Amino acid sequence: MGALDGRVAVITGAGRGIGREHALLFAAEGAKVVVNDLGGAGDGSGSDAGPAKQVADEIVAAGGQAVANTDDVASFAGADSLVKQAVEEFGSLDVVVNNAGILRDRFIAQMDEAEWDAVIHVHLKGHFSVLRHAAEYWKTRSKAGEQVNASVINTASASGTFLPNPGQVNYGAAKAGIAAMTLVAAQELGRYGVRVNAIAPAARTRLTEATPGFVGELMKKPTDEGALDVYSPAEISPLVAYLASADCTITGQLYAVQGGQITPAVNWHLGEPHTTDQPWTIDSVKEKLGG
């Protein structure tokens, strides 16, 4: 038996990279998979039905169950259509893996409005749109008396959480928003039988290889033959598959993950307070905070 036998999963951005590895592993573990990918370029431009279809065909050829979907997940209508396709095709929906994303890197002083809007649109709105329609489906089932056991895995990033990367203010802001969304959603949706977690993956993809600075350099393949490829995208998927499984109970967590390492990320937390028994003044704030 597979770890995901009978589970119906929607995986966005599953035509390439990490999403493709998710889809292949999920199907190999018995899940029925809706392979979503708009098929655009790394910056979000254009579309191509080929990547989603190729992955779905590969799964079917290997004896699994999958269908392709090319809806734009950042569109409310597209996200709704994606969720409905899963239910209509396979009879239910148990798992959402929000993975789709783009990059339009630029330093703040040169970034234009379109570069900001496009990244926020695909990442933050795209995650929310699919989550929102899936949540409505699960809430309706729960209110009808059904026992829901569902899981959402969002894709955040070190950029914007614990390792901000210059040149990615749009991407970092979107990913920080996704991390916060995950925590709120875990609190809201638990009552309906839905767990919500997030990952911050480090893996070699067409997006990370194009990332400026040290990140792109890190993603190079190992030269030592036989060594663990710590940045292989396939190394991300086992954690996601476990979080998606029916017997997992984890919720409200963010995990940094790469080959050979899974690290829980600690949420924003309060340090030691600076206190006074008098009204604050600028001078007293300066005295307390220093700097």
Rank of each mutant, 00 (worst) to 15 (best):
123 H>M: 11
123 H>T: 14
123 H>V: 12
124 L>Y: 02
124 L>S: 11
125 K>L: 10
125 K>V: 00
125 K>N: 14
127 H>I: 05
127 H>G: 09
127 H>L: 05
129 S>E: 11
130 V>C: 14
130 V>L: 14
130 V>G: 07
132 R>H: 15
133 H>G: 08
133 H>V: 01
134 A>H: 15
135 A>L: 13
136 E>Y: 15
136 E>K: 15
136 E>P: 05
138 W>T: 05
139 K>M: 08
139 K>E: 08
139 K>R: 15
139 K>A: 09
140 T>L: 15
140 T>R: 14
140 T>N: 14
141 R>K: 15
141 R>M: 02
141 R>D: 00
141 R>N: 03
143 K>S: 04
143 K>M: 07
143 K>W: 00
143 K>F: 00
146 E>H: 05
146 E>R: 07
147 Q>H: 13
147 Q>W: 00
147 Q>D: 10
147 Q>R: 09
148 V>P: 09
148 V>E: 11
148 V>A: 04
148 V>R: 11
149 N>D: 12
150 A>M: 07
150 A>R: 14
150 A>E: 09
150 A>N: 11
150 A>I: 05
151 S>V: 03
151 S>K: 03
151 S>F: 00
151 S>Y: 03
152 V>G: 12
153 I>S: 02
153 I>Y: 01
154 N>H: 07
155 T>D: 01
156 A>F: 00
156 A>L: 02
157 S>R: 05
158 A>H: 11
158 A>Y: 06
158 A>I: 10
159 S>W: 04
159 S>V: 10
159 S>H: 05
160 G>S: 10
162 F>N: 07
162 F>T: 13
162 F>G: 01
163 L>W: 07
164 P>N: 01
164 P>R: 05
164 P>C: 02
164 P>D: 04
165 N>I: 15
166 P>S: 02
166 P>H: 13
166 P>Y: 13
168 Q>T: 06
168 Q>C: 12
168 Q>S: 13
169 V>M: 14
169 V>G: 09
170 N>V: 04
171 Y>N: 13
172 G>C: 06
172 G>R: 03
173 A>K: 04
174 A>H: 03
174 A>D: 04
174 A>Y: 04
